[in-house]
Design a protein around this nucleic acid. Sequence first.
DNA 1: CGCTCCGTTGAAGAGAATCAATGAGCGTGG
DNA 2: CCACGCTCATTGATTCTCTTCAACGGAGCG
Lengths: 246, 246
Amino acid sequence: MTVPLQRNVSPKDNPTSTACRDCPVRTLSLCAALSDEEIVQVEHFRRRRSVAATEQLAWEGASGSLLATVREGVVAMTASTANGQEQIVGLAFAGDFVGRPFGHGTGFGIRPLGRAEICVFPRDTFDKLAREHRELGHRLLVHTLDQLESTRNGLRLLSNATARQKMAAFLLDMSKRKSIALARADGAYLRLPFSRQQIAQIVGLTIETVSRQFTSMRTAGLLSLPGRREVEIHELRRMGCEAGGA
Amino acid sequence: MTVPLQRNVSPKDNPTSTACRDCPVRTLSLCAALSDEEIVQVEHFRRRRSVAATEQLAWEGASGSLLATVREGVVAMTASTANGQEQIVGLAFAGDFVGRPFGHGTGFGIRPLGRAEICVFPRDTFDKLAREHRELGHRLLVHTLDQLESTRNGLRLLSNATARQKMAAFLLDMSKRKSIALARADGAYLRLPFSRQQIAQIVGLTIETVSRQFTSMRTAGLLSLPGRREVEIHELRRMGCEAGGA
DNA sequence: CGCTCCGTTGAAGAGAATCAATGAGCGTGG
DNA sequence: CCACGCTCATTGATTCTCTTCAACGGAGCG
């Protein structure tokens, strides 16, 4: 069986294209602010990178950290806590922007959770563009405001919630994100891109407690765990009650 | 004794002036992005308000919340946690901006911690200005990035730290802020604008634990408590060790 | 003086962390 | 094909910290 030669391949059908207009996050990311003409200019200085799961993209406390857009996978911002553990203080999914423009670096560590594809911008060029291009700057601002809001939401969660509440809220949050691999539209089935250890670092618990909560929820009939990284939530409403302190 | 008539009073000497150029946060806030000519335009639509300690400026979950600059005092963003408590997820000091521009409200409650002076902007006018005025937009972006960074720092703290670590980090954070009433330049003496209850809501502990930590730190010789809201840190370095998990 | 608000202190209980061991999945290599 | 070793997840027992419930003390004020 021979593979037929394809002619007139549309951009979308060509997964190996390096053109920005074929980028999977073309309309999600900051780049949506750029016209097709403008983005061709960007192609000259942006650099795509495929990062391995073990690769650290920036170190905590390092001054000059990267500026990038996540094209595929999940990228985490980390901060080491007092007892030497590592807390995840932010997540960036496909289309999200990572890094601290304008001067100083983020101060946080940046690393992928699993394999990821990112698109890196040189600092000075990006800064200049973000200042001069009105629409891009505005989009970056809105994106930052959104991140601030969700980080503050995380703050509420981590401060006072019980382990059960943290886990329920985390699962509901994930079920709302369409960008992570979702098998069903209602959000009841999740294919998490995280290990148990990573979940623990996100919700601020130990891996043991995370595991206990999963089994406890399963025996309570709230969910089932078809695979290591799969979760099937049986009743989203009941899960909401768990998150809300009921 | 008669008060002599003063002629040629300089702006700074006139505390009751309602002009923006006499504003105490003229050079700190977003308004620093505006020239003296531009700010006269702003005066036409901005409205100053004096808010009482008990006054709620915005309710959690309310869609249209306020946009304002803090001129004096402290303003908090709040979120009610699962167990009905109220967690403070953000603080705004003199010069800081409060609110969520562009569309949706913050979703968080906004209230002053003690008396405060704010400068309120109508939503549509502000949004328009922030989009059209390059320098103002840029300053708002940088401010938001800063807030995001400090919120993420708070996340690290609240997630895994012990009560002692939380309190030490909180005190150090406050000692670095020059905008709250500081009697000494080295930051070793603090006049906190917070009650014990408010501190508890900020660091995510109960009021009892906060109180216990204060007395424990006092008996350990780390600090002394001259007044209800006063703190004298004896050794900033040792306090840093406490915050860092030593 | 008595009231209220705020802060402190004490004793008991609950929840998560820690320490420790077992189990499941997966790739490697014999 | 199966044994082995590795990583990741689960489960158990214990310890410790913080919360909760309760009482008390002091400052400010009518």
